[in-house]
Amino acid sequence: MFIYIDILLRLALWLLLAPLLPGVINKVKAWVGGRQGPPVLQLYYDLARLWRKGVVVSTLASPGFIIAPAIAWTAVVAAALLLPLAGAGAALSFDGDVLLLVYLLALARFCTAWGAMETGSAFEGMGAAREVSFAVLAEIGIITAVLTLVVQSGSIALSSMFEPLPGPGAALLAVGLFIILLAENCRVPFDDPNTHLELTMIHEVMVLDHSGPPLAMILHGAAVKLMLFSVFLAQAVLPLSELPLLISLAALAGSVLLITVAVGLVESLTARLAFKRVPLLLTIGFLFCLFPLILTWMGDL
């Protein structure tokens, strides 16, 4: 019985807190730009509005157009539930759940691309192709980071694999995971979430023809994914699970907020990269994750 309450509490936490992060990012961007900006809770209002609206479905589209965003959203939320929360640990944990997490994220991406292709629009197909081809490079980085944690802790269960590396390894891993966080969540050096030019969009172009509740699911799923990566990054780098429960949760929340502000700052201070330079930055992110792996593997050099 207790475990159900635990899972429900976590679910509520993830679902309710996630839309806060894009609001914080937008506030930071507005603050750097000297504007007042939208309220921090804007995404909540948007989601509520979208939820009440109807859906416009193209005559070309199969039911997959509605089903795909739903599967993607479920997969991302399920992946988030697998993640332990600092001192509170994970609600359910088994050996190899980290693989399930990676595959759930891949499933979510597949479904977003599938939903985009359903519309039969050339632009959305283009966006899907871009999203998937960059994801191939970003995924190498995630898998390397996961391998680093696995080698460091000697465990393949998420609940016990977050044993941060000592010193420089942790710093390298933090930079690498941050680059991958930006790429995976389509933030600025890789993609501009505010752009309105179909030719240069990646993620946003895939959701152009979605409306109503499916769009709400896509937006909320993106927010949950951002929070998931921030929580993963914070726990992979900081030794949070050794602290007492409440302090560790507060530290986790603080570091997630810090990461969000950093994303906002990167977004305000840098320009989007040209497409042909994106693989270079992703390769650099991969190398930032690879060197901690070598450091851990070689032992104390």
């Binding site: 693989p279 270079l280 390769t283 650099i284 190398l287 690879l290 060197f291 070598i294 070689m298 050099l301």
Partner: peptide
């Protein structure tokens, strides 16, 4: 190119560390 030379350099660095 930049990506091949980065990967070559990283591979060389790792090999140097591993061969020691």
């Amino acid at each position: 190119g930049y990506i091949p030379s980065l990967l070559l350099g990283a591979g060389g660095t790792i090999a140097a560390v591993a061969l020691i």
